[in-house]
């Protein structure tokens, strides 16, 4: 196994593009090393991207936030401005594993791993996050919801590397929230999850995005659920409609972590609860 430490994203992309064997990007390693341990992959090349300066920081500008691909969960939690603007994103990223995992894991890794249960992905999609992708020859920017195409599969071409995630500038009276169900309070994988991002105008929901995790091969944007709460003050009727729309949008599987029935029902419950939290964070009173 070759181990490389490029210092530019382009260099990383070129290394990955050229490799004929099994090539992997190493950022936090919290998925890759598990797969290596379990014998699920035997890389011939590992490209450690943590030496690339362009990937290492969280920056704030008029356009919003840019979160480098190697920024670990703990660093996101420590960033006060990010937490203030996007508490839902930060809490979602913070739910990936223990403090030990937080010291290593990255949102981009969480995204590119392609797990339907990835915690940060529904929150990023609800927020309208974009991924800056660098290839051997060109850069492109793509909405996060276009990255994962199925369990373990992404739309990235061979050699393409995500350099950073961008979050749009935060409008006033906005709030987001992410909730998941896990059997344990920590150290667990989402059985079902929901993210809600919304903006208010005089207490009424003006825009909203509702995204579910672990209920389908990829995260699901539930437009009908958003519609159910837009124009409301999140009254009970709106919340019930939101929950019903979420349950209707589920296409889950039965597996060792949960049942179809359970995921379908609890998706609605979590979406309601997340909506309420996001609403309050946006300054609304219930």
């Amino acid at each position: 196994m070759r181990y490389e430490t490029p210092t530019t994203t382009k260099e990383a992309a070129t290394l990955l593009h050229k490799e004929k064997g099994q090539a992997h990007i190493l950022a936090g390693g919290t998925d890759l090393l598990v797969r290596m341990k379990m014998g699920m992959t035997e890389p011939t090349l590992v490209v450690d991207i943590k030496h690339i300066p362009a990937m290492q920081a969280i920056t704030k500008s008029a356009a919003g936030f840019k979160i480098g691909a190697t920024v670990c969960g703990a660093a996101m939690t420590e960033h006060a401005a990010l937490g203030k603007a996007w508490p839902g994103i930060v809490e979602a990223a913070n739910l990936i594993g223990s403090d030990q995992i937080q010291g290593r894991c990255t949102m981009v890794g969480n995204l590119c791993n392609g797990s339907p249960a990835a915690d940060s992905v529904p929150a990023m999609i609800a927020a309208g996050a974009k991924a800056i992708i660098v290839g051997k020859d060109k850069r492109r920017t793509v909405a996060v919801d276009k990255i994962v195409t199925g369990p373990g599969k992404t739309s990235l071409a061979k050699g393409e590397v995500i350099e950073a995630i961008t979050l749009p500038a935060r409008l006033p009276r906005s709030g987001d929230a992410y909730l998941r169900f896990t059997p344990r309070t920590e150290m667990d994988i989402a059985v079902v999850s929901a993210a809600v991002n919304l903006t208010l105008q005089r207490g009424v929901v003006k825009t909203a995005r509702v995204v579910l995790g672990a209920v389908a091969p990829t995260a699901v944007i539930v437009a009908k659920a958003a519609k159910a709460i837009i124009g409301t003050k999140l009254d009970d009727e709106a919340l019930e409609k939101l929950a019903a729309a979420c349950s209707a949008a589920c296409n889950p599987i039965d597996d060792k972590r949960g049942t179809i029935e359970y995921r379908t029902k609890v998706a609605g419950v979590l979406a309601k609860r997340a909506a309420k939290i996001a609403y309050q964070r946006a300054g609304g009173t219930l």
Partner: peptide, 13 residues
């Protein structure tokens, strides 16, 4: 200074 699991870090890192 960051808490990690040594089993999820490569020695070369």
């Amino acid at each position: 200074g960051r808490l990690v699991c040594a089993c999820l870090v490569l020695g070369v890192e």
